[in-house]
């Protein structure tokens, strides 16, 4: 099966090529800020990809996804503060911490549904926020500066901006591939089936609670990785990383790009953060434009940007959500 030359495929290939060549372009343009911006975009896109797994494919409206960003970030920050600089310790701790948190809150939250699920995930994320805000040893409300990035073996040096960018990008691509493989596996089909009709899936013999919980933990772990990257990127962690508005930002990325589409979250993250950058260049009051714009997307562009691209290629109705 050769991919067709459609508007959507062209746009995605152009986006991927653009991301791959970004450091070259930033170097040629002499614009160092561009690379910093895009490193941030790539890291948050990774978080959005993980959210898309549960939100887009699993139909689990988690409003507390930023908690994993914070846990992953704090794992790096706290270990660095204690003098443990090796990435081989920091990153597994970040992943394990997020996985454990996801397991606990998933096991409790998945017993509820609908609005209650949104609220209970939000509540747990806020709890995490207050836990870290209360840790006086690690800066409390003010956050924690990280003086040294995670150390790996010799050729890998996270302080090298270009190298760090490509590491983030590689992890992002790996995550997109993993999610794509996952949702098209038997496991993923069960998850998507549970989104459409949970009762029927249980009736034909799938213990959907366990499937959803595993999916929830995978997404949380992936987002924890994004948090570890973000901490290395900003050299700083603070409870603000997991404030509920950050969870809202992640949901915006997923929905803006296109829920339940493999590249949707990446498109959404690029669109949102570039738009923020452009609008804040035009006016100091850029959120006054962004807010109503979001409302318009919700009202009139249900499939997000990816949905628009699919429509553009004249295949309305065909797989907007799958």
């Amino acid at each position: 099966m050769t991919p067709a030359l459609t508007a959507r495929n062209i746009a995605i290939v152009a986006l991927l090529a653009g991301l791959l060549l970004m450091p070259v372009f930033a170097e040629l343009a002499g614009n160092r800020f561009l690379l910093t911006l895009f490193t941030r975009i790539v890291i948050l896109a990774l978080a959005a990809v993980s959210l898309n797994l549960i939100l887009g494919y699993g139909g689990m409206m988690s409003f507390g996804h930023a908690a994993y960003l914070g846990i992953g970030g704090y794992a790096v920050g706290m270990l660095a503060h204690e003098g443990v600089l090796s990435g081989f310790v920091q990153w597994p701790v970040a992943l394990a911490g997020s996985a454990l948190f996801a397991l606990i809150i998933g096991a409790l939250s998945l017993r509820t549904r609908g609005v209650y699920f949104i609220m209970i995930t939000l509540a747990f994320a806020q709890m995490a926020y207050y836990i870290f805000a209360g840790l006086a040893r690690y800066g409390g409300d003010d956050g924690l500066t990280i003086y040294k990035r995670s150390q790996f073996f010799n050729p890998i040096n996270l302080s090298n901006k270009v190298q760090f960018y490509y590491i983030c990008l590689a992890l992002l691509f790996a995550a997109i591939y993993l999610v794509w493989r996952l949702v098209n596996s038997r496991f993923g089909m069960t998850i998507q089936g549970a989104r459409s009709n949970d009762i029927r899936m249980r009736a034909i013999g799938f213990p959907t609670y366990r499937y959803k919980l595993v999916c929830f933990v995978i997404a949380g772990t992936m987002c924890g990785l994004s948090g570890a990257l973000l901490a290395n990127h900003t050299d700083f962690v603070s409870p603000q990383m997991m404030y509920w508005t950050r969870s809202g930002d992640l949901i915006i990325m997923v929905v803006l790009g296109g829920m339940g589409s493999p590249f949707g979250p990446l498109i959404g993250a690029v669109a949102l953060l570039v738009l923020e950058e452009v609008l804040s260049g035009i006016t100091e009051y850029w959120q006054i434009i962004l807010g109503p714009l979001l409302l318009l997307v919700v009202l009139f562009a249900r499939g997000g940007i990816d949905g628009l691209l699919v429509k553009l290629q004249g295949k309305e109705r065909a797989k907007v959500r799958s």
């Binding site: 409206m61 915006i252 850029w286 006054i288 714009l293 979001l294």
Partner: peptide, 21 residues
């Protein structure tokens, strides 16, 4: 409900910024 969350999140941004303005 997801649409509500997003749409009203947009309204928050709008109101906060209008007040700042």
């Amino acid at each position: 409900h997801l649409d509500h969350v997003l749409g009203t999140f947009g309204l928050i941004l709008f109101f906060d910024e209008s007040v700042r303005l």
